[in-house]
């Protein structure tokens, strides 16, 4: 089981590209990456979940925590996700109403502006 975290700058935003499985064991690594970006003053984030095969409530909790923090600074988080199983989890939990979820990074980045 692994999680890959790749952070890169893209225009006015930062993209956090995640790959693998996000669960109670791996979510701290994701949280650290997002927290580091926010601590550095980056409040507009695109989190790309296209290579994520699995996410549980701890992963959702990390995303929610990140969103709450950037909103305090007038920023936001857009998600990229087309995996139907993962989108289903956002639907069930009602998080589709809280996050903007897009099919690709270009759309997600446009939504930040």
């Amino acid at each position: 089981m692994d999680i890959k975290v790749n952070v890169r700058e893209s225009g006015d935003a930062y993209v956090v590209e995640l790959g693998g499985e996000i669960d109670v064991y791996t979510s701290p690594k994701v949280k650290d990456a997002i927290t580091e970006l926010i601590d550095q003053g980056h409040y507009n984030l695109v989190i790309n979940l296209e290579k994520v095969r699995y996410i549980d409530s701890t992963g959702l909790g990390v995303l929610i925590g990140g969103l709450k923090r950037v909103r305090e600074h007038g920023g936001t988080v857009s998600l990229v996700c087309t995996n139907p199983q993962i989108r289903k989890i956002f639907d069930i939990t009602g998080l589709v109403k809280i996050f903007g979820i897009y099919d690709d990074e270009t759309e997600a980045q446009k939504a930040l502006v």
Binding site: S57, L60, I64, I89, I92, T93, G94
Partner: peptide
């Protein structure tokens, strides 16, 4: 019954009940 306002509390148990 359903997490609201981005609350993380009870999300896991909520998912079990839903799935």
């Amino acid at each position: 019954r359903r997490p609201s306002g981005g609350s993380v509390e009870g999300l896991g148990i909520f998912l079990i009940q839903a799935l």
